[in-house]
């Protein structure tokens, strides 16, 4: 039996092993943060974090995730208590239609966990794989910058705990 830990809770997987992670997250767990965009790993709307790495969940079958830790948008905070990067996206009003935003946030989250001091150029390069059809890229970049600065101010790099991968 495949077991996947999502946002800190372990779940047994009872679907066909070839099922994309995205379908299982949405249909079995009701976690609708990650979006179905293209189904081909080309738009990034389905991005979640697996063991610290941003992955396109529409092209990762659950069979590849046995024993692994997955973090979705829901793992970063709630509507009442958003995480620092979510807070920054709200403050910058970075969403227009909002469909790409969960993927943008998760890919940025993985980058900042690995590189809290990421430069603007690194943020741009990292988000290159995620598409936004509304054209709010400038606000998205500002939001990631704001979130990075907020996280760094809240906890200096040396003192910050590992936030992704939960139990690791």
């Amino acid at each position: 039996m495949t077991t996947i830990t999502v946002n800190g809770s372990a779940h047994e997987v009872a679907v066909d092993p070839t099922t994309p992670l995205l379908y299982w997250l949405r249909d079995a767990l009701g976690l609708n943060g990650a979006k179905y965009g293209c189904g081909l790993g080309q738009c990034g709307a389905c991005t979640v974090v697996v063991e610290g790495e941003a992955v396109m969940s529409c092209v990762v079958p659950v069979v590849a995730l046995d024993g692994k830790h997955v973090t979705t948008l829901e793992g970063l905070g709630t509507a009442d208590a958003p995480g620092p990067l979510q807070r920054a996206f709200i403050d910058e009003q970075a969403a227009q239609c909002g469909f790409c935003i969960p993927g943008m946030i998760m890919r940025a989250e993985a980058l900042l966990a690995r590189r809290p001091d990421a430069s603007d150029a690194e943020i741009r390069a990292t988000l290159q794989t995620n598409l936004c059809r509304c054209g709010t890229h400038m606000r998205i970049l500002k939001a990631v910058r704001r979130g990075a600065d907020a996280m760094r101010a809240a906890s200096p790099p040396a003192a910050r705990p590992v936030r992704l991968g939960d139990a690791r």
Binding site: P17, T18, T19, P20, C38, G39, L40, G41, C58, V59, V60, P61, V62, V63, A64
Partner: peptide, 24 residues
Amino acid sequence: GSQVAVAAGNGRGAALYAGACASC
């Protein structure tokens, strides 16, 4: 369309192919 369902062959590699590669 862009989506195809592929009957997975035997083994882990075949399942990974069906889930990760076949849609393109």
